[in-house]
Simulated scan of single mutants.
Amino acid sequence: MTQMIRWGVLGCAGIAIKAVIPAIQSSRSGRVTAIASRDPKRAEETAAAFGIAKAYGSYETLLADADIDAIYNPLPNHLDVPLTIKALEQGKPVLCEKPIALSAGEAMTLAAAQKAANLPVAEAFIARHHPQWKKAQALVAEGWIGEARVIQTIFSYYLDDPRNVRNQANIGGGGTVRRRMLRRQHGALPVQCRTLAGDRADGTRPRLRYGPPRERTARASRGPAARLHLLDAAHPFFSGLDDAIANMKAIDALFRSATTGRWEAP
């Protein structure tokens, strides 16, 4: 018999309400049994809507609940590492929304805490696990489209509310998803990055280049441009926190390049 995992959810984020909580509640192996919000009323309303037994007015109270087996953390980006570490300290494994950290340093701090706790920590990043992305990666690797010389991606939506967390750079607003999807499709990790235009690295248009003898370029369409030199595709593409750390190193390098105007190594 499959053990039923009792999940606690930190916050009432849209992705939790629209996607993750319904998925857990309809699964055969898990149930959300507690939810917390800094707004107790919102926690209570969400709990009532999904049949969740407990609603807490603080994250720490939920983390201390001995009847919770695992934590889902969809909080704003700047709270990902601190609350995930607190969950580990309470003996609870964590599924944390992307990006799992604001910098490579933060990601490495989390990795150290995960190792000390000896508990699972996973980044909820759909492109790593979705069958569509896995199939696309396999087709490229098998040569179905020939030698990959250029990949161009477009990801956009309209959001002009300055109060939205996605538009607040000081708490991690901005995006890293497209850069990682490009890296994943190439099956390689960056070794050098450069921001080519503008003074912002949160909407970069990355260009990914393979080394000799041939050069291949992947380019995304929005924001200041950036180039990433990559290792040969024979190098393994890491997963879990190794992947998160590698991703944040590339992002850190883009931010540095936006300031220095030079190539920067992750």
Rank of each mutant, 00 (worst) to 15 (best):
P190Q: 07
E142H: 00
K135H: 06
A111F: 02
L231K: 15
R28Y: 14
L182S: 02
D242S: 06
G105E: 13
R216H: 10
W133V: 04
N118T: 07
A265Y: 13
L139G: 02
W144N: 04
L254N: 09
P99C: 03
V94I: 03
I245S: 01
G105V: 10
L196Q: 10
G30I: 10
A253C: 09
Q185I: 10
A64I: 09
D161Y: 07
A47D: 07
A246Y: 10
T2P: 14
I245A: 00
M1R: 13
K92H: 01
R183M: 15
D252T: 03
N167V: 03
Y158V: 09
R149P: 00
L228R: 15
Y157P: 12
A36R: 11
H229D: 15
A107H: 03
W263K: 12
A141N: 04
T33H: 15
G146L: 01
E264W: 06
D80E: 06
W144L: 03
A48I: 13
D232E: 09
S239H: 14
I24K: 14
M4A: 12
I24V: 11
F155M: 05
L196T: 07
T46D: 13
R207G: 11
V32I: 15
A64Y: 12
A246V: 10
D199N: 10
A197C: 04
A23M: 14
D160P: 06
A246H: 15
L208E: 08
R163W: 14
Q185S: 05
Q168I: 02
E60V: 04
A124T: 01
P266K: 05
I52Q: 13
R42L: 13
A201K: 02
P224L: 04
A246L: 11
K134C: 01
G174E: 01
A127D: 01
A23K: 15
S156C: 10
G30A: 13
P162I: 06
H130A: 06
R184H: 13
S221P: 14
V32A: 14
D160N: 11
R214I: 01
V9G: 04
K135V: 02
A127W: 06
R178C: 03
Q114T: 05
N247I: 14
L63T: 01
G198N: 01
R200I: 00
S221V: 11
A13F: 08
R166F: 12
G198F: 00
A16Q: 14
A64V: 07
I85K: 02
S27H: 14
H78C: 02
K134M: 02
D80K: 13
S29D: 15
R256C: 02
T204E: 05
V165N: 05
